[in-house]
Design a protein around this nucleic acid. Structure first.
Lengths: 114, 114
DNA sequence: CAACATTATGTCTTTTAAGACATAATGCTC
DNA sequence: GAGCATTATGTCTTAAAAGACATAATGTTG
C-alpha cells in the first residue's frame, strides 16, 4: 500500500495553483516562451495559456510579462510575483511530501509503534 | 488563498482507500446495513457497493460481514480489518490535516518568518 | 509591407469518472 | 411458498474535466 496525495491552492472556489502549473511556469522561465514551454511539456498552447490565465484571475496577480512580434515573434518571462509563488510553493510542498510519507510509514508500516 | 488537499492510498495502481470510503464504512458500522448507509449518504446502493468491492480487491482484505435474507432482509457489519483500517486512517489524516494547514499559514500567511 | 513566431481566445470533441437503471439471488418469517 | 429487505452485479447514461481545432492579433525584422 502506498500513500498518494495532491495539494493545491484555491481562491473563491477555483483552483489557483498546483503542481502542473508550477512545472509550466518553470518551463516558461527556462525557455522564455509559453509556446516553447507547452511544446516541451507535450501539451497544447491553448491548454497552457488557459492554466496561466486561470491562476492569474484566481490570485489577482500577473504571472507573465509577455511581448508579441519582433525577433522570434515574442515571448514570455516570469514576473517577480510568479517567482515568489514558485519558491514558496516548492518549499511548502517539499516539506509536506516528507512529512506525509514519513508519517505514513510510521502508522501503516511500523506495526510496533502505532 | 486556501490550501486544499486529498490523501489516498493505492495498491497496484488502483485507489484503495480514501475519505469517501471511510465515511461510508462508518455509516455501515452505525446503521448495520450497506443499503441504509448508501441512503443516508445520498448515493446509490450500486455506487456504495462498488467502492467497498474495489477496496476489498485492492487491499486483499474483507471489509464487510454480510448476511442476506431473514428478518430485515439481511445486513452488513464491519470486519476487524475494516475497523483497524478506519482507526489508522483517522489517526493519520488527522495529523496530516493539522500539519498541512499549520505549515501553509507559516509560509503563506506569516510574511516575517518565511 | 510581407513574413514570421509568438500571444490571445472562442468553440468543439474526446476522454474519463461518477452515477443511474435494471435485474438476479439470498434466506428468514409468516 | 409468497413476501420482504437486503446483498450482488452487469450495463447504460450523464456530467465534468481535459484537450484539440481554428482563427485573430501583435509588432519587429528584413
Amino acid at each position: 500500500m502506498k500513500v498518494k496525495f495532491k495539494i493545491w491552492f484555491e481562491e473563491n472556489g477555483g483552483v489557483a495553483f498546483a503542481e502542473g502549473r508550477r512545472i509550466l511556469l518553470e518551463a516558461v522561465d527556462r525557455l522564455g516562451s509559453l509556446n516553447a514551454a507547452a511544446k516541451e511539456l507535450g501539451m497544447s498552447y491553448r491548454a497552457a495559456w488557459g492554466k496561466i490565465k486561470a491562476t492569474e484571475k484566481a490570485l489577482g496577480i500577473k504571472l507573465l510579462e509577455v511581448t508579441t512580434g519582433g525577433k522570434g515573434g515574442g515571448g514570455a518571462t516570469l514576473t517577480s510575483e510568479a517567482e515568489e509563488l514558485i519558491l514558496k510553493y516548492q518549499k511548502y510542498t517539499g516539506r509536506m511530501t516528507l512529512l506525509i510519507e514519513k508519517e505514513f510509514k510510521r502508522i501503516f508500516e511500523n506495526e510496533k509503534s502505532q
